[in-house]
Design a protein around this nucleic acid. Structure first.
Lengths: 220, 220
DNA sequence: TAGATTGTTAATCGATTAACAATC
DNA sequence: TAGATTGTTAATCGATTAACAATC
């Protein structure tokens, strides 16, 4: 049971980019745009843009192009930004605090209602005006509040145990900042990863590859 | 001039994952592994694993498999983790501080040597034992310290101007947390993005799609 | 209407998977 | 040696690009 069927992962991953660029176009007062112009600005081919959008419906008009505002709204609908989800955060360390404070959850339909940590010194302190709760109260809190999503900002060693607890009580949507692959552990969960460490290694590869230090080649 | 030629992006993006899993195998004392076993643990096909690795050389042995430790070391070399790069961070807000404190830069060959912000109240404070410097000193600092990489942790409105300044003085490798597409602005830069906002929207799509609210379907 | 640009089908390109000979 | 598993070629699958008829 899916709203749109057979949408491939590459298409889905481009949607936020479209949304972002259309938002910027609105900000600077552009009201209509052709796939060709979008192509120039975004670096996708015009053909790909039209293919992507036509997975969800015909939002353009022949001879005219696309209305920036209505396309923006449509993609917002497609992304489901008009839904409301209750989220909790696990881990109130540096990363957890930064994500909690930094993200505009409301704009994306997420409502952060709880933050958990097992460090007694953190329990009771406020992050984004939300009191940090002891991790032992995780289950009772979730049962009282119909939580939809858990955000993992804990070290990788702590992740599997907490994921098990959440999975047991039926919370199966995860935004994962921990360096642990939750998706390999269950087959009925939705996991979106932000693997900063992986990203940094990819940057390292690209820089090293560009710089081409021949003496390094395949040491052994 | 590249160390390895024609390595496709999907392959590169899988390398850190291999590296991570091999590290975990070492931790639990596994010394050898076949592509089949790795496949079971990681969720890639055995065929893909062998194809991926053979882009860089033949690291296995027929009838035996791969040595976990030497494969781990090899992938580290391939990723360039044994190089040393000097990095600066732009932006000492919540996100910048969290990234600065949270990441093990040294393990990936990065040495964070400077943090910049234009907020006078932040200038002089310590983050990870590094004093925050006024953004106006960016150019002089970079000229004195041969900086390789800039990490963007500033709002998207501030990004293009700072990117221009860095580009002008020859710093062209960026780790980008800002919601601005630096790569569209220049054609001679290396940009690796961590777009947390995009990631959150993708999660939103997946949850909404799974939940299948029919009344939402293609309103308009 | 004529010009422009979409929606959509067909062609191409690239990445993944399967198969198997080489070989440890 | 026999068994196992790689390295690598061939087959398949899927995603991107090109082309063009439909239509605003």
């Amino acid at each position: 049971m899916h709203k749109y069927k057979n949408i491939s992962s590459p298409v889905i991953r481009r949607l936020p980019r479209y949304y972002r660029f259309l938002g910027e176009l609105m900000d600077i007062g552009v009201t209509r745009i052709s796939s060709r112009e979008l192509s120039d600005r975004m670096g996708f081919t015009a053909s790909q843009i039209r293919q992507d959008l036509n997975n969800f419906g015909g939002f353009g008009q022949q001879g005219y192009g696309y209305s920036v505002e209505s396309l923006y709204t449509e993609i917002g609908h497609i992304l489901g930004l008009d839904h409301q989800y209750k989220a909790i955060m696990i881990g109130a360390g540096n990363l957890g605090k930064a994500v909690a404070v930094h993200m505009s959850f409301e704009k994306r339909g997420f409502n952060l209602i709880g933050i958990f940590d097992n460090d007694k010194r953190k329990v009771g302190t406020l992050v984004r005006n939300i009191p940090v709760t002891d991790l032992s109260e995780l289950e009772s809190f979730c049962r009282d509040n119909s939580v939809d999503v858990a955000i993992f900002c804990v070290p990788k060693t702590a992740t599997p145990e907490i994921a098990d607890r959440l999975h047991t009580i039926g919370i199966k949507n995860y935004w994962n900042f921990s360096h642990y692959d939750i998706s390999m552990r269950y087959d009925d969960v939705i996991v979106e990863n932000v693997h900063m460490n992986d990203s940094l290694m990819i940057l390292c590869y690209r820089i090293s590859d560009e710089n081409d230090f021949p003496q390094e080649k395949m040491a052994e």
